[in-house]
Simulated scan of single mutants.
Amino acid sequence: MKTSARNFLTGTITAIKTGAVNDEVVLKVGNAEIVAIVTSESTKVLGLAAGGTAYALIKASSVILMTDTAPDKISARNVFNGTVKSVKTGAVNAEVVVSAAGLDVTAIITNESASRLDLAPGKPASAVIKASNVILAVD
């Protein structure tokens, strides 16, 4: 499968919490868990079930980066605490890779934000992803 999403992660479904409209799907990827919110219809159409394999796709522009903030004070379900692996600046935006829990999560943020957060390789940072920004796919 080819995709433009910078974050393409393969994992095993460990839990599905079924709701009236949406389902919460938990995917184990390496040492991390990623929570996705998908419609109940998508769960059925994709054949999602505990123990199955799925892919989590997350656009880099959907990843929020934080420093010096307690992850338990955020409403987003996916918070990966780690360190900055790399920062590549462009004319307007920067591509920042955060290594956390055995994952590399890529974010695209403005150069101004990268500077304000003082992001540099080796510095601590957290990658934050709302569960509703995680797209699930299967073969």
Rank of each mutant, 00 (worst) to 15 (best):
T12S: 06
D139K: 13
R77I: 06
N31Y: 08
S113F: 08
A91L: 11
T89R: 15
N22M: 08
A131Q: 04
A125G: 05
F8H: 10
V96N: 13
V96R: 11
T106P: 07
A76D: 06
V35P: 07
G30M: 05
I34S: 13
I58D: 02
V38H: 00
E41R: 14
N7I: 00
A5V: 00
V134S: 04
A70W: 04
S113E: 12
S99V: 09
S62G: 15
N78P: 12
S75R: 03
L46M: 09
S4R: 00
V98L: 07
A60W: 07
R6T: 12
T110A: 00
S126T: 03
A60P: 05
V35N: 00
V35C: 01
F8I: 07
I37Y: 10
D118G: 12
G90Q: 13
V87F: 04
E33W: 02
E95C: 15
K130S: 02
K44I: 03
N133D: 08
D68M: 01
K17C: 03
V29K: 04
D23S: 13
D118Y: 10
T69R: 08
K44S: 04
L119S: 08
Y55S: 06
D118T: 08
G102V: 10
V25P: 06
S99E: 14
A127N: 14
A15G: 11
T14C: 00
A120G: 12
D72P: 15
D68W: 01
V92A: 09
P121L: 09
I129M: 04
D68C: 02
N7G: 00
S42Q: 10
A36T: 01
F80A: 02
K73M: 12
N7F: 00
G47S: 04
V128G: 07
S75E: 05
L136R: 14
A131Y: 05
V26D: 03
L46S: 04
K73D: 13
N31M: 07
K123I: 10
K28P: 14
L136Y: 10
A36K: 00
S99Q: 14
D72I: 15
S132G: 11
L46T: 11
A49Y: 06
A131I: 13
I16N: 01
V98R: 05
I16E: 00
K88R: 14
G11E: 04
S99T: 11
T3W: 04
A5Q: 02
G11N: 01
A137S: 01
V45D: 09
N93C: 07
Y55M: 13
G51T: 05
D72W: 15
A120V: 12
D23Q: 01
T10I: 07
N22V: 11
G52R: 03
T12V: 06
G19S: 03
V45I: 09
A20W: 09
L57A: 07
V84R: 09
V35M: 04
I129L: 06
K130L: 03
S40C: 12
A125D: 10
V97T: 07
S86N: 12
E33F: 05
A50C: 12
N78Y: 13
F80E: 03
A50H: 07
V92W: 13
A20H: 09
A49L: 10
I58R: 00
A56T: 08
S113G: 13
A107H: 14
V105R: 02
